[in-house]
């Protein structure tokens, strides 16, 4: 009866959780645009504030969000360093340190104020991007609601023969079977370990080979499941998306529209704030 925490969804009853998933998809896209609009100190401060505001609004524990940032620390550090050392500007902060390399070559370390600002902005941008998308979508929207929203948002594409319904149905089924197949993988791995399989030692090729006794049964079982599921779906009168009704009808509420408008206003605000150059403005 082992449960698998699947996906990132964090169940809670917040205004963001209650929002129409379509609105959330649109908001997320808008938010991403906003993060890229930001150019100067004021904008980035506003961005950071908005991210904090969204987090509080979503009632997702801050610890969870910080944990999701942790894997990005390497990338953040790396981009910061590149920005710090590679940006050439006008306000030089360091004396020209020179590190001899080989022969007559030297590496001249010069750190400009612009580099530090750029690094800071970059970090804020990435963090805000991450918090924004996760709080607006992944933490507050079930995968199934997301699939549903995407199916509806893309339904105009049906006119140009894009099989939107089929793609959505496949995604739904994939989401439904991920936990089942994960359980199954664990079970087969245990069964082979009980016969002395060793998945952890040896080189890359040896390890890949050791996985065959897991992958083959898993594949066989997945095909069996697919076959049985297809039968079961036929028995439940599935015949494609045509003429289907829906149990869950999405209602775009006034508050959803309002939220979208608010974010558009925020974007416009940033656009104008960009002209108020305090401290530093990115080029």
């Amino acid at each position: 009866m082992k449960s698998i925490a699947f996906g990132q969804y964090y169940p809670a009853n917040s205004p963001i959780h209650r929002m129409d998933p379509r609105a959330k998809v649109i908001l997320t896209v808008l938010y991403i645009v906003c993060t890229f609009l930001c150019r100067n100190t004021l904008c980035f401060a506003a961005l950071l504030l908005s991210a904090v505001f969204l987090t509080v609004l979503s009632r997702v524990p801050i610890g969870m969000i910080l944990r999701s940032i942790r894997p990005l620390i390497v990338i953040l550090t790396f981009t910061s360093l590149i920005n710090v050392f590679m940006t050439k500007g006008e306000r030089l902060l360091t004396p020209s340190w020179e590190i001899p390399l080989w022969g007559a070559h030297v590496w001249r370390i010069r750190i400009f104020a612009e580099g530090l600002w750029n690094a800071l902005f970059m970090v804020v941008r990435i963090v805000a991007l991450l918090i924004g998308t996760s709080v607006l979508l992944s933490y507050t929207t079930t995968p199934i609601a997301l699939t549903d929203a995407l199916e509806r948002l893309f339904s105009p594409l049906k006119k140009i023969k894009v099989p939107v319904h089929d793609i959505a149905m496949m995604t739904t089924i994939a989401l439904r079977f991920i936990p089942t197949l994960m359980d199954e993988t664990q079970r087969i791995m245990n069964a082979q370990k009980a016969r002395g399989a060793d998945f952890t030692s040896g080189g890359l090729i040896k390890r890949a080979k050791a996985l065959l006794p897991v992958l083959i049964p898993l594949l066989v079982s997945a095909f069996n499941r697919a076959y049985e599921l297809a039968s079961a779906m036929e028995c439940r009168c599935y015949h494609g998306g045509e003429g289907r009704t829906r149990l869950k009808i999405l209602h775009l509420r006034v508050s959803d529209v309002f939220a979208v408008l608010l974010l558009v206003a925020f974007g416009v605000g940033i656009f104008f704030l960009n002209r108020v150059g305090i401290l530093y403005t990115m080029k």
Binding site: I188, A191, Q192, R195, L212, P213, I216, P217, V220, S221
Partner: peptide, 8 residues
């Protein structure tokens, strides 16, 4: 359980 699913 259901060990036939481990054959490969």
């Amino acid at each position: 359980q259901y060990p036939e699913y481990q054959l490969f």
